[in-house]
């Protein structure tokens, strides 16, 4: 069971820290859809696919001292930044290092905004549908975010690139 914890630490280590809880959630979800061993269960929530179990694991990892959580005051809201701790390097050894293709994926995702990752993750959530139906679905569940055609275009391109990378 601790392997699930360890693979989260590996993930954060590879990204050299992740800023924003939403970003972490969505990055892990996208990685899961690409085949990264994420066993945490995801459901659809306010900001798209979200895993309560992952939130719990992250909190546990902070308590265990393998991840550190930094609260950043952004005026209107607070943001949380996650980093691995020096103690985590031995713990990570419970699972093998990431493959090169996953490392590239993480690198790609890290440079995207959390709004964009939310769109990508939501599209992945409805990936059993045809493209048009996917777009329609996103407009229904994410009406307030008003994603533009350009954003959809970019998101689909991003998904194709990620998938290509993995093959």
């Amino acid at each position: 069971m601790l392997r699930d914890h360890a693979s989260i630490v590996r993930f954060v280590a590879q990204a050299q820290g992740i800023t924003g809880r939403k970003k972490l959630q969505k990055m892990m979800y996208i990685a899961k859809k690409l085949g990264y061993p994420v066993h945490e269960k995801y459901e659809f929530h306010m900001y798209g696919p979200y895993s309560e179990e992952l939130t719990a694991r992250i909190e546990e990892l902070c308590t265990m001292g393998f991840l550190s959580e930094q609260k950043e005051d952004k005026g209107a809201y607070t943001q949380y930044a996650y980093q691995t701790t020096p103690e985590s390097s031995a713990f990570m050894e419970l699972v093998p290092p990431l493959t090169d293709s996953f490392s590239t994926c993480i690198e790609e995702m890290k440079h995207k905004s959390s709004r964009f990752l939310e769109l990508v993750a939501t599209l992945f959530y409805f990936d059993d549908l045809e493209r048009e139906a996917q777009v329609e679905k996103v407009h229904i569940v994410k009406g307030k975010l008003n994603f533009t055609d350009e954003e959809f275009e970019e998101a689909f391109q991003f998904i194709d690139d990620l998938k290509k990378n993995n093959c």
Binding site: R21, Q25, Y50, T55, E59, Y77, S114
Partner: peptide, 19 residues
């Protein structure tokens, strides 16, 4: 190894990624 964990009630913090 088995673990259980529960959050009895969660509140919303504005702007943050609470779900």
């Amino acid at each position: 190894f088995d673990s259980s964990s529960d959050l009895p009630y969660d509140f919303y913090r504005p702007g943050e990624e609470g779900e």
